[in-house]
Design a protein around this nucleic acid. Structure first.
Lengths: 247, 247
DNA sequence: TGTAACTGCGTATTAGATACGCTAAATAGC
DNA sequence: GCTATTTAGCGTATCTAATACGCAGTTACA
């Protein structure tokens, strides 16, 4: 119950597997595999990541990969941590609010490089080294707030939740948009045709107010919405910090 | 450019397909298929939903389904809307804050019945009738705030983002927990073993403070975290509403 | 009544994950 | 050095799933 109870994928992410003493030199490393898989996902998409395609990219056979990962799912878990890379170090001497805004933008920037991230299932706590580094970075931003540790965790969890929501909503939408923009540009007129004011009074009001008419740049709109919601959340955090300070 | 430019899946969700005049009476309806698929996903999980299993459940052949849905993906999209069902009507005369809290709890309650929801890809704007009803309900809660329509949309989008984040994070985690609780109960000691204080100073502080030691009920912890973050967000919204009122 | 528009379905194809076992390489211990 | 052991790569086989295609029987309309 003490030595190596770590789940296999966690151990793999931290590269804790002791290198074998015997046997042929591996011609392939876990890093190679993960890198190839990420490149493939970046270049095409997550659906293109099959064990066969990854192996092909490495000039190996499909089954060779299974010497390094237990299953495709394990590979995906490791990819999800690797894709985040390390957070850029927080600029020194920034207040917590600037810090968390910087952090949130950083997460989105990191993930924007790997749009498939949103489609990955999360199957455990953020136990990979990169994930943990991001977690640490956000916590660090709250260092001087005077909040007790569990409260910091709560604030950061809320932020993570919000950011994950953005990742899910915005990135999936963007993928859908890329696939069929007309579904979006016509969203307003679709609604107009389908929305009964008696059933959907509030949406109906929006349609009449023309809120859906100017679509704008999809990405910019999303960015603006994200920032707006983020600042609302941080306003709430600010009030909370004040409350705690006053006791 | 006017008649029926609706994307196929949207049309399907709204049941806009005109019933065919000729040919044999369908022995199968889209509703049957969606219901069967949802039952299957509820009883087992999303991975169990294959066209073959759904058809089997209906006493039909696999290929019969394809007369009613274009592809499995289309079925999943329709399922995702159907799973939400209709929101419970908002209690009359509640203030916006109570309304939005009620709303958020309602979403989670609805989705808790269908844990597979978190694993579904979202591939377009919320264009299904149930999705739209939820959207409408949240907007309606802001009716008396005096916010301009686009600001209401912003507030609701932020809320949706947060709730979707919760769905992604908490539900995926719960699934992971169900599968392998030890990964979670040992999370603290895992961290302790792996966390270098120089690399992860803030997390290291948490570990030392024992924050991860008492695990508590997984579900309860999550619920509490969700509410905490939600209230922070709503605090921000309250401040925003005040700001707008003052001009 | 013939025919066009359908439905359900059997069959076949394709893609993908992965179990199994073989062969050859590298090392540890003699 | 020699041999047993451990391990890497890989060929083959299996299993599951999605789905294209075309046939046969069914029904409304001309």
């Amino acid at each position: 119950m003490e030595k190596n109870e770590l789940p296999a994928d966690v151990a793999a992410m931290w590269r804790l597997r002791e290198p074998p003493r015997r046997g042929p030199k591996p011609s392939l490393t876990l890093d190679d595999i993960v890198r190839a898989a990420i490149e493939l996902a970046d270049a095409e998409d997550l659906a293109a990541v099959s064990m066969a395609r990854v192996a092909e990219r490495l000039g190996n056979s499909t089954m060779a990969l299974y010497r390094h990962v237990k299953s495709k799912d394990e590979l995906l878990v490791i990819m999800s941590d690797a894709a985040l890379e390390r957070p850029e170090p927080m600029p020194a001497d920034v207040d917590w609010r600037t810090g968390l805004t910087f952090w949130a933008d950083g997460v989105l920037t990191a993930i924007r490089k790997h749009k498939w991230y949103a489609k990955l299932p999360i199957s455990g706590p953020p136990a990979g080294p990169n994930n943990l580094a991001w977690f640490d970075s956000a916590l660090g931003a709250l260092k001087d707030t005077g909040l007790p540790e569990p409260a910091k965790v709560g604030v950061v969890m809320g932020l993570i939740t919000y950011v994950q929501g953005e990742i899910r909503v915005a990135f999936d939408l963007a993928a859908g948009y890329a696939e069929d923009p007309s579904a979006f540009t016509q969203f307003g007129s679709t609604l107009a045709r389908v929305v009964d004011p008696r059933v959907y009074p509030a949406v109906s009001r929006l349609v009449e107010a023309g809120v859906f008419d100017e679509v704008g740049s999809f990405e910019e709109d999303n960015e603006a919405d994200f920032d707006f919601g983020l600042q609302l959340y941080l306003d709430g955090v600010a009030a909370f910090i004040e409350r705690v300070k006053r006791g």
